[in-house]
């Protein structure tokens, strides 16, 4: 049995895939077609999800008597005051709520995991263990401090202290480059993996080889 929906889907998908890849040669009409299709589909998909979440998170509690949920609806509509020259200042208010939530959550999330835990873990490195481990740990700490010093912006770079700082700064730059290199090399694997999976789709599903 040949499933028409599936076959047509694979052909449609393969065509779009090749249209997108044609960009590597030159921007062309086929790419433009695929690009605009993608933007339309994704904007529509998210609008559908948006309508759904307005209904489930907002409308259902409101209709079951949680009067306070009228507020987000009002603020939501205030976003649209920006189309009126006279009322546009009101559109800052909903944005202010969003920024408040983002800033609050950002501060909250950063301190424990990104600062305290990291400092604690660094303090717990054994510096006097067996030679190999000690070497690794000391290198770890030196690189860490040098990279931190690379990110110091306002201290004067003169005098003996400034000279010392300059060495650290340069070491920090080198360490940063080493980190970039390692991350770059590792990133390549995932990019290729994704690429490989597209080829599996094109070769195995579309062409039927292998």
């Amino acid at each position: 049995m040949v499933d028409l929906a599936q076959i047509s889907g694979i052909w449609f998908g393969a065509a779009l895939n090749i249209f997108i890849w044609s960009l590597v040669f030159k921007e062309n009409r086929f790419y433009r077609f695929a690009e605009y299709t993608f933007i339309a589909l994704s904007a529509a998909h998210f609008s559908v999800l948006g309508v759904k979440s307005i209904l489930t998170i907002g409308w259902i509690p409101l209709s079951t008597g949680k009067i306070s949920y009228i507020i987000p609806f009002i603020f939501g509509f205030l976003l649209y005051t920006r189309f009126s020259e006279y009322w546009r200042w009101l559109s800052h208010w909903p944005i202010a709520i969003l920024v408040g939530v983002g800033i609050g959550l950002g501060i909250r999330g950063a301190i424990d995991i990104q600062i305290i835990k990291q400092i604690r873990a660094t303090m717990k490195l054994a510096v006097f263990a067996n030679p190999m481990e000690a070497f690794n740990n000391i290198l770890f700490v030196i690189m860490l401090i040098s990279v931190v010093s690379y990110f110091i912006f306002t201290f004067a770079q003169e005098g003996t202290l400034g000279k010392g700082y300059n060495y650290l700064y340069r070491l920090g730059r080198l360490a940063l480059m080493a980190g970039f290199g390692i991350a770059l090399g590792n990133t390549v694997a995932v990019r290729l993996a994704l690429f490989t999976s597209r080829w599996i789709f094109l070769i195995k599903d579309f062409l039927g080889i292998g």
Partner: peptide
């Protein structure tokens, strides 16, 4: 929850 709804309106 409000923030999610406002973002959806956007």
């Amino acid at each position: 929850d409000w923030a999610v709804i406002i973002a959806a309106f956007a």
